[in-house]
Amino acid sequence: MELDVNYMIDTFFLALGGISVTLQITIVALLVATPVAFFMAISKIYKVSIIKQIVSGYVSLIRGTPMILQILIIYSLVPSLINMIVKGLGWDFNVFDVNPIIYAYIVFSINTSAGLSEVFRSALLTVNVGQLEAAHAIGMSTVQAYRRIVIPQALVVALPNICNLTINLIKGTSLVFMMTVKDITAIAKIQAAFGYNYIESYIDIFLIYIIICSITQLLFALVEKHFGSYKSLKNA
């Protein structure tokens, strides 16, 4: 089998146009999930009775089900149910006119919040509780203690896991083509359909995701180095 190199080059640059969509979904998911995940982590650490049970069930459910299934439910089943309710109430609103990227935001925000909550919880638990007690002793409130003492230290510990989660999130966005969102994968697959050049398109997709994930790892490595240096200076 001979690869069509010219097709690969053309499709590679066309597929690069989908990077903005991939990064947009990734950034929105992280921004939405971060405060939610932090709240869930705190509720589990402090064992807030009912909330802790709800959070534990939520995390188990999301982490225990395939993302494809979550996409099918939120993109296909939920809109159909909402449409039935809307029509039943006599409202003039077509749920299916909603931009499909909104569903992508919802799916990946839900998924990310579950994983990120465990990252935050494990990182926060590495900070000695004595530091929080010492902060209270000098007159700091719990919020001030967390903002100035606990969170900066926990962030250093959490960064490698946040990096892994972000990379998995970026790779996971390749499934948004199932929601008719024109990302990297969707653009390459559409191009492949014209001449059945699927092998070449898949190679292009592979290369683009390798590049994006490598750059992401490099950026996180620089951030870790910065915070690591800061931590060393503080401990010196």
Rank of each mutant, 00 (worst) to 15 (best):
E2C: 00
I9T: 01
T11N: 12
L14F: 00
L14M: 11
A15I: 04
A15P: 01
L16Q: 04
L23V: 10
I25V: 12
V28G: 09
A33F: 07
P35Y: 02
V36T: 07
V36R: 02
A37P: 04
M40L: 12
K47R: 15
I50R: 09
I50L: 15
Q53L: 15
G57W: 08
R63T: 03
Q70E: 10
Q70H: 10
L72E: 07
L72N: 09
L72P: 08
I74A: 03
L77Y: 14
L77A: 13
N83I: 01
M84N: 14
I85V: 15
V86I: 13
G88S: 06
L89H: 04
F93A: 12
N99K: 12
P100Y: 11
I102L: 11
Y105P: 09
F108P: 06
F108C: 03
N111H: 15
N111Q: 07
G115Y: 14
G115K: 00
E118P: 02
E118D: 06
F120Q: 06
A123W: 02
V129D: 15
A135Q: 01
A135V: 01
H136S: 14
I138P: 02
G139Y: 06
T142G: 01
A145S: 15
R148K: 15
I149T: 02
I149W: 07
I151W: 00
L155Y: 06
V156Q: 13
L165V: 00
K171Q: 13
K171A: 14
G172A: 07
V176L: 13
M178S: 05
V181D: 09
K182M: 11
D183W: 10
D183N: 05
F194W: 05
Y196Q: 09
I199W: 10
Y202Q: 13
I208T: 03
I208H: 00
I208M: 04
Y209M: 03
Y209A: 07
I210H: 07
I210N: 12
S214D: 06
T216V: 08
L218M: 15
L219T: 07
E224C: 02
K225S: 08
K225H: 09
H226V: 11
S229W: 14
Y230L: 15
K231V: 06
K231D: 10
S232C: 05
